[in-house]
């Protein structure tokens, strides 16, 4: 279970740069939460702060996983606890092969948890199965990580990592409005096939489109660094129809 309490976060080393201004959120095992909001509301920051991106600083509040604070943990330690962030624009890393990298990640997680590392043979078997499951071109994953991948291929690669690492809490940063339908479908398929009573998801998105493919249990509206409304899947439809106008301070003042 993930619990976010009164979370305040700023850009590291920049004064008056507060982006998250008191976020409260509780995600139970097996739930899928959608976080929606207008541009600049702090959605992507929230996703990144949860994973521990060093560019941000938590100035108040806490993040708890199964009751323990993770606010001071490094990104890799958070990953060992089961967190996972699917990146909107994953880095292109020439010369690093996905198999290699995922084996290192898988081993590091096993080691941190006091579990036995998977043998090269078993890992290769797992890897190949997942490559087939997410429908990524096997030739691509022999090459560099994300380098020269199309948008859709990068998404598939993120889903491949999700499948291989089997996190208990996956955060999907899909804030960009420019995502094409194929990419949306790839992400949705990944989430839907991984959905289980033991695994929770936070799907961060601007438009309701993605939620046509993933049905969330709970939808939150994030505006100006705070969650201003929480509801069921129907809330996403309202936003789709009316936009975020009614939540924006300017709209409130005039209307």
């Amino acid at each position: 279970m993930l619990e976010i309490q009164n979370l305040h976060a700023s850009v590291l080393d920049i004064e008056n740069s507060e982006i998250l201004k008191g976020v409260d959120l509780k995600v139970n095992k097996g739930e899928v939460h959608a976080i929606m909001g207008p541009n600049g509301s702090g959605k992507s920051t929230l996703a990144n702060v949860l994973m521990g991106r060093p560019d941000y600083e938590i100035t108040d509040g806490d993040i708890l996983v199964d009751g323990e604070s993770i606010a001071e943990l490094r990104p890799d330690q958070r990953a060992h606890l089961g967190l996972f962030l699917a990146f909107q624009y994953p880095a292109e890393i020439p010369g690093v092969r996905p198999w290699q990298f995922l084996k290192a990640a898988h081993d590091a997680k096993a080691e941190a948890r006091g579990e036995e590392k998977m043998s090269v043979r078993n890992f290769t078997k797992l890897f190949d199965e997942k490559v087939e499951a997410v429908g990524i071109n096997p030739d691509l994953v022999k090459r560099s990580l994300n380098e020269g991948f199309s948008g859709g291929e990068k998404k598939r690669n993120e889903m491949l990592q999700l499948e291989v690492l089997q996190p208990s809490m996956a955060i999907l940063d899909e804030t960009d409005s420019g995502l094409d339908v194929d990419a949306l479908r790839i992400v949705a398929e990944g989430v839907n096939s991984m959905r289980s009573p033991e695994r929770s998801f936070i799907v961060v998105t601007h438009y309701q489109r993605l939620l046509n493919y993933i049905t969330p249990d709970i939808v939150h509206i994030l505006v100006d660094g705070k969650i201003v409304q929480t509801g069921g899947p129907e809330l996403a439809l309202v936003v789709e129809k009316d936009g975020y106008r009614e939540y924006l301070p300017a709209a409130g003042a005039t209307g």
């Binding site: 991106r53 890799d76 958070r78 990953a79 890393i93 990298f101 990640a105």
Partner: peptide
């Protein structure tokens, strides 16, 4: 950060990047 978010520590992540 991308590599670290997958569970490899900073040192190992840097080594992977240098090797790459």
């Amino acid at each position: 950060f991308y590599l670290q978010s997958r569970g490899v520590d900073e040192e190992a992540a840097k080594a992977i990047l240098i090797r790459g």
